[in-house]
Write a protein that binds this DNA or RNA. Structure first.
Lengths: 196, 196
DNA sequence: AAGTGAAATTAACTTTTGTTAACTTCTTTT
DNA sequence: AAAAGAAGTTAACAAAAGTTAATTTCACTT
């Protein structure tokens, strides 16, 4: 996204807020720094925290019965990360979330924020931004599985995240797309030949 | 779900509301009846309506480049249906939604309801119920694509929706699972043999 | 700079899916 | 009851993905 558009969108979230409102929001926020490889949220934990990614890259994965890892989410700067199991179902997380780059998070308590927004409608643009961000992401992903073949899905991923693709190891991209690393490698080869 | 639990959950949505509040909510709601096969929302329309399915079964699908239909959503009683494109992106719907059983909907204007809830926090349990309902559905579906093979995905669908499976033609189930009807037929055959 | 280990590619083989078309079954219409 | 049509199954073949293992490439450590 263009920087100007980004700034414009941010400002629009705060147009109805006073400096005091914004300050109060900030008191709820805790900054967390993660080193490359560090675990943010482990399996079995019920954490109703919601984190905004200021910079960096976080991956959530589960271990399948066959022992292989399946990448559920890949989120980078300007996106939200949280345990789906905990936030949506109030259950222990089945996924493990870890930073695959040095990462800076802004963490808040999900329930506290929701209560705050309930009581102060002036914040509600923030909630809508959050929900549409998450739903949009889930929806696009699901559509890709239904409408596209694995090869098309990879091309779609590249076009949607041209810069991300270079920051994420192929094996994570493969499991994010629901295929094996071997298969992704073959797809890359096929695509390279087609271009000629 | 058990009926008792269902009733309990419904009541919990209204515990903070007076009779007057509930009455006002009802004035916003319009009941719509659809015959089997009737289109609820067509491609190209931007409708920011949200419908609760009182009874029946609604299917949303898009037509792929190759001319085949891909089933994006299948929703039945006690679930919500709306155009994702319109609600999330405020764009014309790429999908067509039609009833595949005689269906009764309770329709409301999405923006009006959201504004209402913003102004009256006592309604906010309803919004949370809606969002977790939608996100839960999207998430489960996406997980199935990443974690399960087509065969396992079909078994998962059967176990999650034992009664629905009998109400939905196999070809719709196939495209909902991201496979062809021919492949689904083979999967059914394989599973029948394994049981012996 | 050499050595170690992980990631990616390639190869060989098996399994599954896609595709097209024929065939069967079932429902609906006339 | 006969005919027509749609849905589901089966068959045959091509294309793609899974699996296992060997090999190469690359990054990082010592």
């Amino acid at each position: 996204m263009l920087d100007l558009e980004k700034i414009k969108r941010y400002l629009s979230l705060f147009t109805n807020l006073s400096i005091g409102d914004i300050y109060y929001l900030f008191t709820l926020v805790k900054e967390k720094k993660l080193k490359h490889g560090e675990v943010y949220l482990d399996v079995g934990v019920n954490s109703r925290k919601l984190a905004y990614i200021k910079s960096g890259l976080v991956r959530g994965y589960v271990v399948k019965q066959n022992g292989e890892e399946a990448t559920l989410v890949l989120r980078s700067e300007d996106q939200f990360i949280a345990s789906y199991d905990s936030i949506l179902k109030n259950e222990k997380s089945r996924a493990c979330y870890h930073a695959i780059e040095d990462t800076v998070l802004l963490e808040v308590d999900f329930d506290a924020i929701m209560d705050l927004i309930d009581k102060n409608p002036k914040y509600s643009a923030g909630r809508r931004y959050f929900f549409s961000n998450v739903a949009h992401d889930l929806l696009d992903r699901m559509e890709a599985f239904i409408l596209l073949s694995p090869e098309e899905r990879y091309q779609h991923f590249l076009s949607q995240n041209p810069s991300l693709a270079r920051r994420i190891p192929d094996k994570y991209i493969a499991s994010y797309l629901g295929i094996t690393p071997v298969s992704l490698s073959r797809i890359r080869k096929r695509l390279a030949q087609k271009k000629k």
